[in-house]
Nucleic acid binder design. Sequence first.
DNA 1: ATAATGACGTCGG
DNA 2: TCCGACGCCATTA
Length: 110
Amino acid sequence: MCGVSVGRGSSEDVPPYVDGVLEIVDRIPMGKVLSYGDVAELAGHGGARLVGRVMAIWGGAVPWWRVVRADGRPATGHEQEALKRLRSDGAPLRADRVDMRAARWDGRRS
DNA sequence: ATAATGACGTCGG
DNA sequence: TCCGACGCCATTA
């Protein structure tokens, strides 16, 4: 079940927090989203900027489009791409923004 | 060791 | 609603 595990193990020089972040993002259910700050908080360390870095590099292994900014706007530089995916997921989009009020994932259960 | 950068966040205008 | 400034945290120059 769910083995995000990008495959670090001991082959690549991957920082420790990466695994935790990828794990959470991979758990986000379809139609729901989390803000960078939320993911960082669930991860229990670092901050939003850290999550942003993880997504930018190793995010390709997880549904990165479900991670949006606190204002509900998709990641900078990938707005079109993310919006397209969010629509496919059935996320509550309002114009080009996600309705965080309803789309924000609680973060418990899988 | 200091400065600059980045898929961010919050506040003020 | 849009824009700018400051703060946060780890990496890189």
